[in-house]
């Protein structure tokens, strides 16, 4: 067992665990959006940032991918952590104004309004990539892709063509943290007949 501290509280973790896993095991709350225990962590949303301190040295890391180590001093609610959280949430409110889930999460951390104007009032997706990861890693189909890059990054079908390898299992809709996948689902899914027929034949 590895022993270290989160917010001053002594915690124990198994080798190979992350800081987030350990925190949740001990009932310590760290917000996340792009994390789901069923798939690999990607460290994309940065809401789970925590501060590591050692003497005067300190550094922010994403707890969902940071491996535990003996003697770590983890802080989940410092000024720097709150600053990242606040700005990410404020930007998310503007990026996904139509998502009640995002609004609820932001409100939980006292972010109720945003200084930014929204570019798309109907947007709910913040491209965390959970849908693509679950389809790839759990379902094993890769029917969903993260297409384009940078500010143009979005969820879609591979090569922007509705795909008939989708078996309409709904895993992506289940893991989606903002409810966006319900709307995107139909644009990704092509004629599901081929795949379903194949499955039925097996």
């Amino acid at each position: 067992m590895i022993t270290f501290k989160i917010d001053g509280q002594q915690v124990k973790a198994r080798p190979g665990w992350t800081v987030l896993e350990t925190a949740r095991e001990h009932g310590i709350e760290i917000p996340t959006l792009c994390f789901h225990p069923a798939v690999s962590a990607s460290g994309a949303c940065r809401l789970c940032m925590v501060e590591l301190r050692e003497g005067t040295w300190s550094k922010l890391v994403a707890s969902c991918i940071y491996p535990v180590a003996e003697g770590l001093q983890v802080h989940t609610d410092t000024e720097r952590v709150r600053n990242v959280r606040r700005w990410v949430l404020e930007m998310l409110l503007a990026a996904c104004p139509a998502s009640p889930e995002i609004a609820a999460l932001a409100a939980k951390y006292d972010v109720v309004r945003t200084r930014f104007t929204s570019h798309d009032p109907d947007q709910t997706c913040m491209v965390c990539g959970l849908c693509a990861r679950v389809c790839d890693e759990v379902v094993g189909l890769s029917a969903i892709a993260i297409v384009d890059r940078g500010v143009h990054k979005r969820v879609g079908a591979p090569f922007a063509k509705p795909t008939d390898i989708c078996v309409a299992c709904g895993s992506c809709v289940t893991v989606c943290p903002t409810g966006a996948m319900q709307a995107i689902f139909d644009s990704v899914r092509g004629e599901p007949t081929t795949a379903l027929t194949q499955l039925a034949a097996q």
């Binding site: 994309a44 940065r46 998310l92 990026a95 930014f116 491209v127 940078g150 500010v151």
Partner: peptide
């Protein structure tokens, strides 16, 4: 903004803002 890979939110959303 053009060159960000777009994976993490602070970079993808933050640079534009």
């Amino acid at each position: 903004e053009e060159e960000s890979c777009g994976k993490c939110l602070p970079c993808r959303l933050g640079l534009t803002r």
